[in-house]
């Protein structure tokens, strides 16, 4: 016979309470026995969506939570979409294209530079030669001028009998004389050369006329 009266039930409840000697708080006791800790909300936090989601996640449908709250609200969805449009503004295709474009630009730059360098490299030997010849010429000129000067000094010394300073007046006079003489000689030489040329030409012409006739 099952005694189902209210008194019996009350007595059973009392016995259950006395059986619990764990000295745990009611919340902790419930957690230990896999029930949700608070039947009645005791704090503002217990009314929040976050807390109720957690309770649903841990204790399932038995916790009495409406699973609707597990999904975001329409407002939250809109917010998320807005956030994503700002945080991830480019689609994958766009990003791929920009990346490819950047790559191409970089490679192009490198290629141009390399071509440039290659072209210059081809001319390198020639430039080297040019530079060397320029330097040699300059050195030669300097050398020639020095030698000429020394020669003059020698000649003047021979003429006068002692080393004369190039900056001296007599040196300058000597030089001037020398230059004049040289010029005269050159002119004579030129005239002679010209005459010779003329004679050679006339002779040539005579030979040709003779041959023709």
């Amino acid at each position: 016979m099952i005694d189902d009266t209210e008194d019996a039930k009350a007595r059973e409840a009392e016995i259950e309470m006395k059986r619990n000697i764990s000295r745990l708080s009611s919340a902790h006791y419930n957690i230990i026995n896999d029930r949700k800790p608070y039947e009645e909300p005791k704090s503002l936090a217990h009314l929040t969506v976050k807390y109720n989601r957690k309770i649903y996640g841990k204790y399932g449908i038995a916790s009495g939570v409406n699973p609707n709250i597990c999904w975001p609200t329409k407002q939250e969805i809109a917010d998320k979409k807005e956030f994503e449009s700002v945080a991830f503004p480019y689609t994958i295709k766009e990003m791929m294209e920009t990346a490819a474009e950047n790559r191409r630009q970089q490679n192009l730059k490198i290629e141009l530079r390399e071509k440039d360098v290659a072209a210059k490299f081809a001319k390198l030997d020639q430039w080297k030669k040019e530079l060397n010849s320029k330097i040699a010429k300059k050195a030669a000129e300097v050398q020639a001028a020095k030698q000429k000067k020394e020669r003059l000094v020698e000649e003047v010394r021979r003429h006068f009998g002692f080393t004369l300073d190039p900056r001296d007046e007599r040196f300058q006079e000597m030089l001037a004389k020398r230059e004049k003489e040289q010029k005269k000689q050159e002119k004579l030489a030129k005239r002679e050369a010209k005459e010779k040329n003329m004679i050679a030409k006339l002779q040539q012409q005579n030979i040709e006329i003779n041959e023709k006739s």
């Binding site: 936090a45 009314l47 969506v49 976050k50 807390y51 709250i69 999904w71």
Partner: peptide, 16 residues
């Protein structure tokens, strides 16, 4: 928890 809204404010009812 303070950053989370109250359950009573949620009006959405989703089909699932």
């Amino acid at each position: 928890y303070a950053a989370s809204p109250f359950v009573s404010k949620i009006q959405e009812q989703y089909e699932f």
